[in-house]
């Protein structure tokens, strides 16, 4: 177990800048998720921490030791790859024991470690199978087993669930989280799925275009997104972000809707943000026309048109409207997010 510090890390491929100086501080035993759209540099950052990519600038320290020039095998890390990277010609046992075999560990130690990891992951019965004979979830577990047997300081996961079907993904998500809590090993996890990030992380680092947009606890990001990117990225369904200006005693969207503002709102506001779940049905609310009603059972998502502006609301009530009907909704004023013309959150 160890801390990980990334200080002003830069990555350049030829003339293309992938990372523009990134800072991340990861505490001992913390579960950190790097999340962002494809091409944001999150996988590159993970591979730099692993030592699979060299570091063009800045430094990366694991457990207080700067590892810029330390080869991957000496960084005391273990990585789970997106495609698992299991050795196809080795059995599950051989796959898990490979690193120990290279380190010339005694046979009984190897066997014991493999047994222990297999027990944790429920792979006992599969030790003599080849990767081809395993299902996606089992391969995923073998990949984790290969990481566990090494007792690394840091676990690195590179989009480990993206090759699994939706149901298995949810199951493996909780398994990984539970495993991490049991082993209390510092973990860095890369994903493009904000739900994975929200459910698993102690700390989320939202990246975009080679920069960090915001880092913090999942609910902090949800409650106080620092800018438009984070506001739109975290949360599902996504936050309604309505450009406009403060006028007429409220917020006038470019589409013509007039929305109420919380008291003392900043007059510079250029974007009005309200999460779908923070809209309420209210008789004195803003009137909109229903475009679409999507009941999910636990809640109902309604797409409304107010003026020319479309917004989405998610209500615990069962909305019985049909497209074209009128519905009155009101935002929860304490949960309105206002962003300035530069896209950053206004205080």
């Amino acid at each position: 177990m160890a801390t990980v510090s990334v200080r002003q890390a830069k990555k350049v491929f030829g003339s293309t800048k992938i990372l523009h100086g990134v800072d991340v501080e990861i505490a001992d035993g913390e579960f950190v998720v790097l999340v962002g759209p494809s091409g944001c540099g999150k996988s590159t950052l993970l591979r730099m921490i692993a030592g699979l990519e060299n570091i063009s600038g800045g430094e990366i320290a694991i457990g207080g030791r700067v590892v810029n020039n330390v080869p991957p095998k000496d960084r005391d890390i273990a990585m789970v790859f997106q495609n698992y990277a299991l050795y196809p010609h080795m059995t599950v046992r051989e796959n898990m024991a490979f690193s120990m075999k290279l380190a010339k560990a005694p046979a009984d130690v190897m066997e014991e470690e493999v047994k222990r990891a297999a027990k944790i992951l429920g792979l006992d019965a599969l030790l003599d199978r080849y990767p081809r004979q395993l299902s996606g979830g089992q391969r995923q577990r073998v990949a984790m087993g290969r990481a566990i047997v090494r007792h690394p300081q840091v676990f690195l996961f590179d989009e480990p669930l993206s090759n699994l079907d939706a149901k298995l993904r949810v199951q493996m998500r909780s398994e990984i989280k539970e495993l991490q809590q049991r082993l209390a090993t510092t973990t860095i996890y890369v994903t493009h799925d904000q739900i994975e990030a929200m459910t698993m992380a102690d700390q989320i680092v939202v990246m975009n275009g080679g920069r960090i947009e915001q880092a913090g606890a999942p609910l902090a990001l949800y409650d106080r997104p620092a800018n438009l990117f984070v506001a739109g990225f975290i949360g599902s369904p996504a936050m309604n972000l309505l450009p406009g200006r403060v006028a007429d005693g409220g917020f006038r969207t470019d589409g013509g809707a007039l929305l109420p503002l919380p008291p003392g709102a900043n007059a510079q506001a250029a974007t009005y943000g309200i999460r779908p779940e923070h809209l309420m049905l209210a008789d004195d609310g803003v009137e909109g026309t229903i475009v679409l009603v999507e009941p999910t059972g636990s809640e109902t998502q309604v797409t409304l048109r107010i003026g020319e502006t479309q917004i989405i609301g998610a209500f615990r009530e069962r909305v019985q409207g049909r497209p074209g009907d009128l519905l009155r909704v009101a935002p929860d004023l304490s949960l309105v997010h206002l962003f300035g013309p530069d896209g950053n959150r206004l205080p």
Binding site: G51, P72, K73
Partner: peptide, 22 residues
């Protein structure tokens, strides 16, 4: 797959061991 070599690299394999075992 190149990721097999990366995995072996992290597992601590030398170039000869990567050739021999992968």
């Amino acid at each position: 797959s190149p990721s097999l070599y990366e995995a072996a690299l992290l597992d601590g394999a030398t170039p000869w061991q990567r050739f021999r075992h992968i």
